[in-house]
């Protein structure tokens, strides 16, 4: 245990004392790495109107100037229309050129929807993608015990009625594998534009996404630089305020924007609000006693122990996603 950290542990421990200095440090690194290390003359970023890609875009514009940055929107038929609206608003504010590449036809070509719907139909024969919406979510009960989480499939019918079932392994893996075409397709398109322009591709995941494995290997986990991968989510928000990101983007609830039914990232994967998760993750990484973390976030020592265990498990079981190919 680091006693200095434990003594100073509070709900404000992750706040930057000088947010401007951190923004400048990241932008300087971006400039040095894109121009000097990667030898590229600009940057391509996939923009979704979410907080992470918005902050990444603003930092990159500060690094290279708006004329050397291209924002690309990559919607598909399940995407929320809000994503495009917010992405365009930010790009307009930063004076960044944008492109829209609708990847729906490419995904149809891969059989993304057909393969996903086949697995959904195996669980719910009444599911019809034209009339029903679907999502998968993590089982919440796993957070408070030593059992790993399981995923449930939910379908929402035309009358708004929901039905959920625990996903068997075969269908779970097929739905995830099919849905991952979306992120891999986006990565391919982003690299097309990056290579065409001799630009670098800038990834947008934050610390939780990278370290807990909430990304697709060779999908949104594929990029040349990930400039906010060291930042807790609350720090991303702090930077967003400093960078004057539009309020509607800051206030927007982070979603997975992957399945046809609306779904927050908390519901899909993280299982708790980001402010709580930031503090608990920090506590775990720095050996802060469970009781102390519990006092700050309003949970018992036992609850924090279970959450620590859950986070350790997530990190361990997703190690494969962060591994480079094994060579001999």
């Amino acid at each position: 245990m680091n006693s200095k950290i434990s003594n100073s542990f509070s709900k404000d421990i992750l706040k930057f004392e000088n947010v401007e200095a951190e923004a400048d440090r990241i932008s300087k690194r971006l400039k040095d790495d894109i121009l000097g290390v990667l030898k590229r003359k600009g940057a391509v970023i996939g923009i979704s109107g979410g907080i992470d890609s918005s902050v990444t875009l603003a930092l990159t514009v500060n690094a290279l100037g708006s004329e050397n940055v291209l924002g690309i929107m990559l919607p598909e038929k399940d995407s929320s229309p809000e994503s495009k609206e917010f992405a365009l608003k930010l790009a307009g504010k930063l004076n960044v050129k944008t492109l829209e590449e609708d990847i729906t036809d490419a995904l149809i070509g891969f059989g993304c929807y057909m393969r996903r719907d086949e697995a959904v139909n195996a669980i719910f024969p009444e599911y019809n993608p034209d009339r029903f919406k679907m999502k998968i979510g993590i089982n919440q009960s796993g957070l408070n015990n030593f059992l790993p989480p399981v995923f449930s499939l939910t379908i929402i019918g035309p009358n708004g009625n929901e039905k959920s079932k625990i996903l068997p392994i075969k269908e779970y893996l097929q739905i995830v594998a099919a849905s991952n075409f979306k992120q891999r397709c986006r990565m391919s398109m982003l690299y097309y534009h990056a290579e065409r322009l001799h630009f670098a591709m800038i990834g947008t995941p934050n610390k939780h996404e990278v370290e807990q494995g909430f990304f697709v290997k060779n999908g949104d986990g594929g990029a040349d630089i990930m400039p906010i991968a060291h930042l807790y989510k609350s720090q991303v928000y702090q930077l967003a305020e400093y960078l004057d990101i539009p309020k509607e983007i800051i206030k927007r609830t982070p979603t997975s924007d992957t399945y046809s039914a609306e779904q927050t990232q908390e519901e899909f994967f993280f299982q708790m609000p980001y402010l709580e998760m930031d503090l608990i993750w920090y506590g775990l990484e720095n050996g802060v006693p469970e009781e102390l973390v519990g006092n700050v976030v309003g949970k018992t020592k036992e609850e924090i122990r279970h959450i620590y265990n859950n986070l350790i498990r997530k990190k361990k079981t997703t190690e494969y996603l962060r591994m480079a190919p094994i060579t001999y």
Binding site: I169, K170, R313
Partner: peptide, 13 residues
């Protein structure tokens, strides 16, 4: 750590 989350789903199945 004998079984992970995939193992849990497998056991249920």
């Amino acid at each position: 750590g004998i079984m992970d989350s995939m193992g849990f789903i497998s056991i249920i199945g």
